[in-house]
């Protein structure tokens, strides 16, 4: 009944980029310790786009923070390109859900995108090039001098994405990036992520609570259990590479996969009743 352990699927062909092994996180809240994440093990091959779904409150954000090196796990390891992650690694970019709070409100869009590049000590010419390219990639070419708060929510999230891709990361982490934008913007942004992923060949870990989104975007969907979290299912999405909001979502295979993920999540929710070991 456990599907999560290293199925010899296509990821064997490509070297592992991100490796999470036996990850555990326990919060010490005074007298009571809460085990948010119990034992998570999974891998992302280089260039893979994997979606992580789970019932709400299943520790997705905790997991992501551990992977990003923002939080120390209680046990287990995270490895990026075979090197352990102990602090935010240079090869990783993160797009947070709270777009309004992850952008520097006192900097223009250009400065927001450029700041990490300055910290990387890139020469000015290269920075300008990267900023221009990434803003073009997300369709914000004319907005370089605007402030983030002058833009709509969807556009702000595009700025965050532009900043992430200009950083030229090996792995792009996205923490429910579209949970706070409206439905139509969301569809556009999903296609944008697919497009960028295909074009840049970056490894993407996309956390979401939306089953449709996970199936539509991912090459693979990891279903997390309820807290304390383990990987409950690992589903390969065998949809064509070229996806389209209209046809893909009507595809029979899409509905099948969606149903499977849905069933797994329902199972995960019922897991609450289980006594915590």
């Amino acid at each position: 009944m456990n599907h999560q352990n290293h199925q010899p699927n296509h990821q064997g062909e490509r070297p592992a980029m991100l490796k999470v092994t036996g990850l555990q996180k326990i919060y010490n809240g005074g007298a009571t310790a809460v085990e948010a994440v119990r034992d998570l093990t999974f891998e992302l091959a280089e260039g893979e786009l994997v979606c992580l779904v789970g019932p709400s409150g299943c520790g997705k954000t905790t997991l992501l923070k551990c992977i990003a090196g923002l939080m120390a796990p209680t046990g287990g390891t995270v490895e990026l390109a075979d090197r352990p992650v102990l602090a935010p690694p240079p090869g990783m970019a993160v797009v947070f859900q709270e777009y309004g709070r992850s952008l520097f409100a006192w900097m223009s869009v250009r400065d927001n995108v450029e700041l990490p590049l300055k910290e990387k000590k890139l020469p000015k010419a290269r920075r300008t090039e990267l900023v221009t390219e990434s803003l073009e990639a997300v369709g914000l070419t004319g907005f370089a001098d605007s402030y983030p708060w002058q833009l709509s929510g969807g556009m702000q999230q595009r700025v965050a994405i532009a900043r992430a891709i200009a950083y030229e990361p090996q792995v792009l982490l996205m923490d429910e990036p579209f949970a706070a934008v409206d439905a139509q913007t969301r569809a556009d942004l999903e296609d944008l992520v697919r497009e960028i992923w295909q074009r840049l060949g970056v490894t993407v870990l996309f956390v979401t609570h939306d089953i449709d989104e996970a199936v539509y975007l991912g090459e693979r969907v990891l279903v997390l259990s309820n807290s304390p979290t383990v990987v409950q299912d690992d589903i390969t999405v065998d949809l064509p590479v070229e996806r389209d909001q209209l046809t893909t979502r009507q595809d029979e295979r899409f509905t099948d996969l969606r149903a499977r993920v849905y069933a797994q999540i329902q199972r995960a929710k019922r897991g609450t009743d289980q006594p915590v070991a």
């Binding site: 240079p90 947070f96 520097f104 300055k118 990387k120």
Partner: peptide, 17 residues
């Protein structure tokens, strides 16, 4: 803002910057 603080850390913004 903790989110902004996390963002800065992710992108290697530290120290005096």
């Amino acid at each position: 803002d903790p989110v902004l603080s996390d963002t800065a850390r992710c992108y290697g913004v530290s120290g005096l910057t």
